[in-house]
Design a protein around this nucleic acid. Sequence first.
RNA 1: GGCGAGUUGGCGGAGUGGUUACGCAGCGGAUUGCAAAUCCGCGUACAGGAGUUCGAUUCUCCUACUCGCCUCCA
Length: 462
Amino acid sequence: MTTIRLHNTKTRRKEDFVPINPDNVRMYVCGPTVYDRAHLGNARPVIVFDVLYRLLRHVYGADHVTYVRNFTDVDDKINARAAESGRSIGDITAETTQWFLDDMAAIGALEPDAMPRATQYIGQMITMIEDLIAKDHAYEKEGHVLFRVRSYAQYGALSGRSVDDMIAGARVEVAPFKEDPMDFVLWKPSSDDLPGWPSPWGRGRPGWHIECSAMAHDLLGTHFDIHGGGNDLMFPHHENEIAQSRCAGHEFANVWMHNEMLQVEGKKMSKSLGNFFTVRDLLDQGVPGEVIRFVMLSTHYRKPMDWTERKREEAAMTLKTWFRSTDGIKPVSPPPPQIIDALSNDINSHLVFSKLHELHSNGDYTALKAGLRLLGFPDAEKLDWFRGDQEMASFDNLTKESGALFPYLVEWQRLRNSRNYVEADALKARIEAIGIKLSIGPAGPNAEPTEAFDPAKLELLK
RNA sequence: GGCGAGUUGGCGGAGUGGUUACGCAGCGGAUUGCAAAUCCGCGUACAGGAGUUCGAUUCUCCUACUCGCCUCCA
């Protein structure tokens, strides 16, 4: 059996992945807070862990992997959004949850086996908080329940920090009811205008961290294999999850995986910098989901990835080449071993791409197609944008938009046939000026739109 | 200030204690009326300094720079 090697944040090294139970490999990934469209940065962990999910399913069998990704649908950002828009919280979370699923499907992500909503697990959270209080790891103060960080000796081990160091460098305002500045909220009181649930500590709502501990426990048990997310979650979110769960007596996750941040113009995409855009923005601009997926996977997940226009173009070019050569081809099964090996080496997706290039240049298109499938790329036959380009490129099968181009192509062909190359080339230059790439195929002229093509420009040919 | 990650050829980006990554761009060639597409060939890079070693881009230390976390964020 293939040995998968994964970088474990907990040990800071690459380790052989040994599942607790190969018949039920379990993975939990922190999902989005649903209050707005997913920005491009949200897509990175989704794609990275989707590829890992696909690899695990390949190695252990599709029925032997359980992947859980939550939706955080109780959060102060959502409350704020509701207050400013006048819409109900339920409306906002329902809508943005569906947006998220639509957008992630567009970039080729499989849906996890379970997608729990925090609001459906309030009871489990309360039970867990009560247990932590009973075990003296948490305390109630002024309607809040706080986790006592000092009661977990290994607090900070994941992110390589010590409580004392953090207090020394802390820039956080310390709430007066905290025993220790680093203590964090498990439960907080809600005023009447905020969502709240009855609890032993009064009407209130959970803090952010407890939901993942409670849901992972409920759906995956006290001990599971992989916990993933963006590396900005390492501290404090994951650190707090570990503290809570361990103190509740759960073994929790064996392997911790963190993807690096996405950058735009060399800077992290973040709300405070205002340099973020959504997956939907790109899709609406006509960037195919496959291209977004390709760009994401062209950089190893543990390195920062810069989203650039040039990468987008190169990705589209490479994918077109590969789709062209795998169009109508039957893929081999199983996928070629060099692809599995590269992927098994801590999800070295970039190395996979170089192997795919190799398969392509060797003319091994059946293996290339199998590799593309394993990475979660659709078959060329199913891709509308690729099909559209191909059809438009065919002289015999011009689409509505390019129909207006037809007479010019006929004219070009006529000039060429009469060896009137001076005029033929002049016409060609005019056609190419509006973003159409002309070429000659076995059946006659081919016209393929480039990125610069806009149907409105057809007017310019007259 | 505390902690962490990184610095590879024009660009992107893997990897390795000793032999050409790969892709894009570029150059040369085949093919083509010219092109496009396709195919063939060409590039000898690893921030700076010191050390370990027979040998370091790969290990250790130092310096410089970049980025991230410590605050909402994946």
